[in-house]
């Protein structure tokens, strides 16, 4: 197990590159999703207030 995390001495380079990839890919997924939800909520509240 330790051997696996050690990456043959290259842990300092291997893991950061995977970490940053994961982070960037996650951001690209999360940010638009978040924005989409916010927009939906905004539209819903606008729609609701119009009906009253």
């Amino acid at each position: 197990m330790i051997e696996f995390f050690n990456m043959g001495g290259y842990a300092m380079f291997v893991w950061p590159s995977y970490a940053i990839s994961a982070l960037v890919l996650w951001l690209n997924w999360y940010l638009p999703r978040n924005q989409h939800r916010k927009l939906l909520r905004q539209l819903q509240s606008r729609h609701g207030s119009q009906q009253q």
Binding site: W29, P32, L43
Partner: peptide, 25 residues
């Protein structure tokens, strides 16, 4: 992943642009 992220992004963008159209309502 590209298609996935693209769809996600497109949906947000679509909603933003067409917020006043009928289908969004």
């Amino acid at each position: 992943y590209y298609v996935l992220a693209l769809f996600q992004q497109c949906r947000a963008e679509l909603l933003r642009r067409e917020r006043n159209s009928k289908w969004v309502e």
